[in-house]
Amino acid sequence: MGTTASKSMRNVFGETLTELTQQDARTVALDGDLGNSTRLAFVEKENPSAFLQMGIAEQNMVGVAAGLASCGQIPWVCSFGAFISRRAYDQIVVSVDQPSLNVKLVGSYSGLLTSNTGKTHHSFEDIAMMTLLPNMVVLSPGDALEARQAMEAMQRYDGPVYLRLSRDETLDILPGSDRKFAIGKSYQLASGQNVACLSTGAMTPRVYEAVQNLQEEGVHVTHLHFPTIKPLDEQAIVAAARQHDHLITIEEHFVAHGFGGMVSRVTSRDEPVRMTRIGIEDAYSQCGKDPELLDEHGLSSDALTERLRTIYEQVSSS
């Protein structure tokens, strides 16, 4: 841990999708003119007949995917998270989710780290929007290896899925690289007392680092990673709520209606517990380099170390 992974999530995405198209000829990649950024271009290079350039027209692209899926094809549609979710939402609802078609939607460059492009390109709404849809499975892997495993599971799964990817090198593989990915399952990365941290996506490696930092100080908190946001691993949430005094959810998304909101829906119903929801607060973001933005929003490993310690001390002294 702590070192940067040799491979970025987006490169692994491009490589894995290329393989999936080679293994199953029904598989087809749809690009919204961002293939050189998202690495969908790998598919075009290695297997050109499995690549369709739909141009800068996300709404149409999602509709075309629905039609392809209705005829037995397996379309993978990819754009930046901001555009695929916000721009094409009604198409996703009516043409994909309501008929429950086998369309794989990929939001690349999700969250805050979008290569310094600012608020138009940040996606802090996509978890909320996608989890709202009754038939949608929502996956949010924490490292490049898990992104690959999630894609293989998506390919086997028959139905609409949203895959939330980060652009850059995540921190190196999460521990337990032998773990088996399964849709709907969470994983425990650290165990401790009083406080449990629940994180998703590329936040998990940063939380993992923060939890390690605290361990060195003799503070032990539990850490659970949720690569699936829907269907949510409710059992693990209820168990964590029973065993701890305080839950902390952490995500690169608006806190108001994201992963934390999904978790608190479960706890408020089944096992009420004090919670802190960490993420993007209720204001628009702006440009900045990745480390600056993480610091600005209190989401860097260092900022998280402080925040988790503060909560831990409050919980332990009350």
Binding site: G118, H121, K289, E292, L293, E296
Partner: peptide, 8 residues
């Protein structure tokens, strides 16, 4: 960061 001249 904090510039008036945002990327967009």
């Amino acid at each position: 960061l904090h510039s008036r001249l945002q990327a967009h």
